[in-house]
Amino acid sequence: MAPPAVEPVPGEPAATADLGDERALVVADYHAGIEVGLRYERGVELASNADARRERLLSLLDRIGAERVVVLGDIGHRIGNPKGDERDELVALFDALDSRDVPLTLVAGNHDGGVADAFEDRIDVTPGDGVRMGNVGFLHGHTWPSQEVLRAETVCMGHEHVTVKLQDSVGGGRVESAWLRGPLRREMFAEHLGVDDGTFEWADPELVVFPVFNERSGGTWVNVDGQEFLSPFLPEGLESGELYLLDGTRLGDYRTV
């Protein structure tokens, strides 16, 4: 049996992806410069964690020996043109990858318009509805995927910052990042794309929703009543979905955890 095209890195909010001719390190929602955003958005003062974020990514890159980095959207935090600390953090990251001769593909997210314009000569930026590389489709998740993305056997997305709230038998609780995986519902995507369901090219893809890479970002508590998904095709586009902790622990159906 062939190994899975997308394999989580144990204990990390990252995965490896077999792109056919390359092996990629894939992460979602890097949110460079988030500390500046938190200061202005919420009045929270935090020292920059830029160096630690970069070194964590580079350590993962060295650990798995990937030939490309794919970021599933929101590499920067500011929606507009990056400047100040955020720009400095991005430049340092791109310089570090250049020194390793490792290209970066940014799957455009809702925070990335300014980044794409500012660094178009340094990184590859996909359309907002995603890209297919080998047999893996990638999108951020703030828009519907293209038909080409849906022809892949595995579709990877970010955007949701998947988080699960766990409680023990004595009422204690904790919140952890998680993976959400499950098959997509064919008829819903065919209808959105205006394609006849009977002739719709479909590889019966598994959706892999990535945990957030930036530990200072909030998340969607997918097992808490009243929480809503951010993506326009979730949760209705999932036939079913299972949660996994970063250490690989299977929690089961996200609706009953």
Score class of each variant (00 low, 15 high):
A5S: 07
P10K: 13
G11Y: 03
T16E: 04
T16P: 03
L19G: 01
G20R: 11
E22K: 15
R23K: 10
V27T: 02
A28H: 05
A28T: 01
Y30M: 10
I34K: 08
L38Y: 08
R39K: 12
Y40S: 11
R42M: 07
E45G: 07
E45N: 11
A50E: 12
D51K: 14
R54C: 00
E55K: 03
D62Q: 06
R63P: 01
A66E: 01
L72S: 01
L72M: 07
R78I: 02
P82E: 15
G84I: 00
D85M: 09
R87E: 11
E89K: 10
L90I: 15
D95K: 11
R100S: 07
R100N: 05
P103L: 08
L104F: 01
A108N: 11
G109N: 02
N110Q: 03
N110A: 00
H111C: 03
A116M: 13
D117L: 11
A118N: 12
D121Q: 11
R122E: 13
I123W: 12
V125I: 06
P127T: 15
G128M: 04
M133D: 08
G134N: 03
G137C: 02
F138L: 10
F138Y: 11
G141A: 12
H142C: 14
V149E: 02
V155R: 00
H159Y: 15
H161K: 09
K165D: 04
G171F: 07
G172K: 02
G172E: 07
V175E: 09
R181T: 15
G182K: 09
R185A: 06
E187Y: 14
E187D: 15
F189L: 11
G194H: 02
D197M: 11
G198C: 11
D204Y: 09
P205G: 00
E206T: 03
E206F: 03
L207Y: 04
V209L: 02
V212I: 10
S217P: 00
S217Y: 08
G219V: 13
N223W: 00
D225V: 07
G226V: 09
P232M: 10
F233L: 10
S240A: 15
G241A: 04
E242K: 10
L245A: 01
L245V: 01
D247E: 05
T249I: 12
V257M: 13
